[in-house]
Design a protein around this nucleic acid. Structure first.
Lengths: 351, 351
DNA sequence: CTTGATGCCTAAACCGGTTCAGGCATCCGC
DNA sequence: GCGGATGCCTGAACCGGTTTAGGCATCAAG
């Protein structure tokens, strides 16, 4: 009978009950010992641990999830057109940063890519009712963002990537991007540019409008007026259109500050196509310092973001929030300008 | 007492037991009715469903996971340097395609980004012992890929992206990329190029070596010898290096076929930096048709991949495999050449 | 009128953990 | 020597589903 049982056991999962029987204690005590909780004699605890190790016991995530009402996973919902998404390396790096924190803790990342905001809200609701995640990262903050209220109503622990423009019950992990934009403007002004334009991101998105404000402020501070601004939706196509419009004017700007690298790269492409030399005829700066920035010609002068670091910080903050119930805002070091070849002195032939 | 219970119930989850009590049947029968299983009278079934709807019952994924030993999630493990990963829009589009299948089914995608292969294998093991996923997508197939055996040993349902070079127990969802490379070579040969080089991807990766073979075959078929080949690791940096080496030769090629768009874009950058005009002095083709390809200058002639479609197909196949225990290989339409401005007739000044 | 099959349903075990009430010693102070 | 606190441990309930064994009618076949 026993040998039969043994051979059966081989194919079955080792449970906490097996450990308890083998160690001669109760199931409950095994659970206590395994979770480092007080109320277990030191000697008993080591014996239980030894037995568990010998038996090759592994906790069942599923059972743990059910009884502890946790899921040991974090969620990230991305609402973007897949086409646009692909060109933006932000998320892959961000996720890689998140993983460096999650993996050692045995936590998983649940990722959703959805087409629009309505679906996104629905996805959050599903994640909660399914108990799929213990918390989420909220990215791509928008002006008057409906998702904040939605997540607050759902009671889902959340960390926002950036500080919302509205009262938010959630900790924010932010990186100051206005500084980098200001630096770009100062850099260009210092090179002698006076007609500097800005290809802004979407004004509906917080980082879009913030960068745009930073641009205007910096222009004024430099005594260069408000500067021409073209608003886009952050897509490459829109960036290219904006560049075409700016450069086709009777008196085009001598420098363009783009709100993102993909748009800036498209801008360089448009300039070249129009026969406008970069940086001789027009200087161009970007934002993000994506890998391509180094490898196109001329290499892109841009503001270096650090999505990997951001991911780490956000993950650490979210874990803290989940475990302790509260977490402080985190401010990452401001993004700095990386000077390369796409920005130079303005053309001398200016009247 | 009842009103007290009612108010308590408000804050608690509606369980299958509540439905059973309200409908005047047993828990088991409710489960049967909810899962469309035979053995429930039609009238009883509708009554149970109505009660469940009225009570706002939602199945507990966690409880379902525990008892049914499924996790209702699929996994994707990506082993790449995050830096390299960011420039490659493949995965984001692929994931978006996967999501279109998963979301309506109420399934989730668990994503891992790991730094190296050893960690990747460990991640698969963890996913299995944790019962975190019901199946995985295996991407970036390598020559003599150790992961196949690992996944087979783990008994984890898997779909491979592409057909492995070894016996594999898993269904493969493939797209023929050799055709596109051949088309590229024929296109260039047709334009009059005779010295065509290939910047290959990693020879350790299946799609790298396959494209390289396709290049060589196509060259021979066109009567142009083997063609010069430089192997890389698919990184942008390596692509740039390769282009620099090729173009700095005494007799540089008049056309370069790159194994990926990011490398091709870097190649165009290098050419411009060296004062080599594209396409006048050197023609360049890529592979993938990433969004940037359209927006750089000159616009990239490249082979159009369809990662979104691939994601959909892979997800459908994996679901089929999980549900029925087997699935057939799927062959997606071959990737086709997209002709843009980066490839043109070779320079006439050739001796 | 039995026998057996079939259809509908119940009760209870089960998945594998967590948690809580309480039992029994032991040790403390008074 | 006694009441109470403390430490260690057990047993059982619990999380919320799925699944199986079996009970009871009903109905067709023999």
């Amino acid at each position: 009978m026993q040998s039969t049982q043994d051979s059966i056991k081989n194919s079955a999962r080792v449970t906490i009950a097996d450990v308890a029987r083998e160690a001669g204690v109760s199931k409950g005590l095994v659970s206590f010992a395994l979770n480092d909780r007080p109320g277990v004699a030191a000697e008993t605890r080591t014996r239980i641990l030894k037995v568990a190790g010998a038996l090759g016991w592994t906790p069942s995530l599923r059972a743990r999830s059910l009884s502890s009402k946790r899921s040991f996973a974090l969620g990230l919902v991305i609402a973007r057109d897949p086409e646009v998404l692909g060109s933006d390396p932000f998320f892959t790096s961000f996720i890689a940063g998140v993983e460096t924190v999650l993996a050692p803790e045995g936590l998983a990342l649940v990722l959703s890519v959805v087409p629009d905001e309505e679906t996104e809200l629905q996805t959050y609701r599903t994640l909660v009712t399914d108990g799929r995640v213990d918390g989420v990262f909220l990215s791509d903050l928008r002006i008057d963002d409906a998702r904040i209220q939605c997540l607050a109503d759902l009671g889902l622990p959340t960390v926002t990537l950036g500080r919302p423009d509205q009262p938010s019950p959630f900790p924010a992990v932010s990186i100051d991007d206005t500084h980098g934009i200001a630096e770009s403007v100062r850099h260009l002004a210092g090179l002698g540019h006076r007609r500097i334009a800005h290809v802004a991101g979407s004004p509906a998105m917080l980082h879009g409008s913030r960068r745009q404000d930073a641009f205007t402020s910096a222009m004024r501070a430099a005594g260069l007026g408000d500067g021409q601004v073209v608003e886009t939706d952050f897509s490459i196509a829109a960036g290219a259109d904006a560049a075409r419009r700016l450069l086709s004017q009777p008196q085009p700007p001598t420098a363009i500050v783009f709100a993102s690298d993909p748009m800036a790269i498209a801008g360089i492409g448009v300039a070249q196509e129009l026969g406008v030399r970069v940086p001789e005829d027009v200087s161009i700066t970007g934002f993000d310092d994506i890998e391509f920035a180094r490898y196109i010609y001329p290499a892109l002068t841009t503001v270096g973001a650090t999505p990997l670091v951001w991911g780490r910080a956000a993950a650490i903050t979210l874990l803290g929030l989940i475990r302790t119930g509260s977490a402080d805002d985190v401010d990452l070091p401001a993004a700095r300008l990386v000077i390369r070849g796409s920005a130079s002195v303005p053309p001398p032939t200016e009247h």
